[in-house]
């Protein structure tokens, strides 16, 4: 007999499992597709732990709770703490000024400071640096979470289950598969490029009035380009339009991306609530962790912590919604 059953082995379910296991609870993890892979949206994430950049458009709660994510992840996986760089093309300078006005703690960079940080961006003349932000490699982070759980003899069972079939407390972290009435999918598309000539040591955000882009270095000349954000529940592969937009923005950042090889493209849905803030929806013995939107890795630790605090101490954090 286990203390808690977790359904869904994406970033939310696995981090909750990890947090609860550290508190000495016994767990069972079920996922209809088995261990994390391309079937889950956690697989397609950028892995930026950027509470201040996100705070320009997200609710202040995301910035506050997201600020704890880098330390939390560093216990499980490799977290690169080299900040975030934000730049804009010369003609979009107004975007940079607006971003600077609204963003959290950062340093404005002139051309020489920018070049000192990222020599490959020497063609750009100004930017913003968010020194306290970080990033991780999502697929490695998922694998490291799985390994950390295995070390505690917790294994992911491939099985379909509904909370009603299970006795005892249940954490439902199935993302779009959870029956939550307010949940919607927000489509995102990404590409992975191999550009061995280009070196970037931190995520770079290129502001643009129509096609904002971020590039997350994965090491060894591999870069993740993301991401579109479309109010649509469609799961088809990346569209030609999205590819054009992502690649054009990458080309504008550094023309050498034209010669890069497209290793992979992906598209999936981000589960989101109307306020785009994640929730622990509590109904009886079932806790549904969902709605991480574009903040899966940024918010999973806080969401897991609040769910665990609720289960162990009945603490009602900001993300707890009692049904």
């Amino acid at each position: 007999m286990h203390d808690i059953t977790i359904i869904g082995a994406g970033v939310a379910g696995l981090f909750a499992a990890y947090d609860l296991s550290l508190r000495g609870l016994t767990l069972r993890i079920l996922d209809r597709n088995g261990p994390p892979a391309a079937h889950g949206c956690s697989w397609w994430a950028g892995g930026m732990l950027a509470p201040y950049c996100e705070g320009v458009t997200a609710d202040p709660l995301i910035t506050r709770l997201g600020a704890e994510s880098a330390d939390a992840w560093a216990q499980v996986t490799q977290v690169t703490r080299r900040g975030t760089l934000v730049i804009a093309l010369d003609r979009d300078r107004a975007e940079l000024l607006r971003f600077a006005r609204r963003a959290g703690p950062h340093d404005p960079l002139d051309a020489s400071a920018l070049t000192a940080l990222e020599p490959d961006l020497a063609t750009h003349r100004q930017g913003l640096f968010f020194p306290s932000e970080a990033h991780l490699n999502p697929r490695r982070a998922l694998a490291d979470l799985v390994a950390a759980l295995q070390a505690r003899d917790i294994h992911i069972e491939q099985a379909t289950a509904e909370p009603d079939d299970i006795t005892g407390p249940v954490i439902d972290a199935r993302g779009m598969a959870s029956p939550l009435p307010d949940l919607r999918g927000v489509r995102g598309e990404m590409a992975v490029l191999h550009a061995p000539d280009i070196t970037l040591s931190r995520p770079v955000r290129l502001l643009h009035p129509r096609h904002p882009l971020y590039i997350v270095p994965r090491g060894n000349g591999i870069f993740m380009l993301g991401a579109t954000q479309i109010e649509s529940g469609a799961r088809h592969p990346i569209t030609a339009r999205a590819m054009l937009e992502l690649l054009s923005a990458a080309y504008a950042l550094d023309t050498r991306f034209a010669e890069s090889r497209v290793l992979e493209t992906g598209a999936d849905l981000r589960p989101a609530f109307p306020d785009n803030i994640p929730r622990v929806t509590v109904r009886g013995r079932v806790l549904r962790l969902n709605g991480l939107f574009r903040h899966g890795y940024l918010m999973a630790p806080a969401l897991a912590r609040q769910a665990a605090d609720y289960l162990t101490h009945q603490t009602r954090g900001e993300l707890i919604h009692e049904d």
Partner: peptide
């Protein structure tokens, strides 16, 4: 253009 697709959650909003 872009708000098509299954679910239509946004259209309903």
């Amino acid at each position: 253009r872009r708000e098509s697709g299954q679910g239509q959650a946004f259209g309903q909003m």
